[in-house]
Amino acid sequence: MAKICSLAEAVESCIGDGDVVAMEGFTHLIPHAAAHEVIRQGRKDLTLIRMTPDLIYDQLIGMGCARKLIFSYAGNPGVGLLRRMRDAVENAWPKPLEIEEHSHAAMANAYEAGAAGLPMAVFRGYIGAELKRVNPNIKSVTCPFTGEELAAVPAIRPDVTFIHAQKATRRGDVLVEGILGVQKEAVLAAKRAVVTVEEIVEDFDDVHPNACVLPSWTVTAIAHVPGGANPSYAAGYYDRDNSFYIAWDKIASDRDAFTAWMKENVLEAGPDIFAERVKGL
């Protein structure tokens, strides 16, 4: 059964140095508050998995928490590049970063394979694509029935997955609504799962029977962090802070500006600042 506790306690008990970590949320519901707590607690040597590293991993990488990144699209969506990640890849600042690069289809399939308890994912992909040449984890298998050659990648099995969701009940069931991304698969593929939520409610009696609900026993810890996805968004609560995504490009373009921003807004702050930030969004 999921334990409802503070974010600091959830992070303290669920993630260790060197862990393989997925923080998912496809543009929507990105668990920014949880990542900030991981940074504050100084976790290091993490293998970070995320389809779209986004600002959340730009920050973890820039703060030196990561050893390796597994990803499929490393842009600031609609804005440009991820400058801290790029500085790590091109200049090893603040430390070298190993990368394992895939396509979206490969990672989505790999999460699903992880949730399904399979060792690998099989799909029709990477045809004529050069990632095969540079990523030894992209292989192929031949269909035993038709002879078709298909792409194969290892299943994703994180030590711990972090997601943000709209609601949890007091007994710890979690409701995710809107753009679902790969969150359900990422939780079911992981050994441990931490969920931050906008709201804790009595029950889900008014929820549609086919809604995306993660039962309490699939989740390790839940923390109530209103606004915890900002500058990403939580459908029904607040919108994506597109102007911050644009502003981040400038902050992240300079090592000193980045370090100063992280000091003020992460190291010397706490999860309670997120509720304030989403007012008016």
């Binding site: 496809f26 543009t27 929507h28 389809m51 969506p77 609609g78 804005v79 979206h104 289809a105 989505a108 399939n109 999460y111 699903e112 799909f123 809107g178 753009i179 679902l180 991304g181 790969v182 359900k184 698969e185 968004y233 459908a235 919108d239 994506r240 597109n242 995504y245």
Partner: peptide, 23 residues
């Protein structure tokens, strides 16, 4: 601005998970 802005989901006929989208 992004491929996942809330407006896209609000105005869609249906929204499916990303693995379902690609598979």
């Amino acid at each position: 601005l992004s491929i996942g802005d809330g407006e896209l989901c609000k105005t869609a006929i249906t929204t499916v998970s990303v693995p379902e989208m690609f598979r």
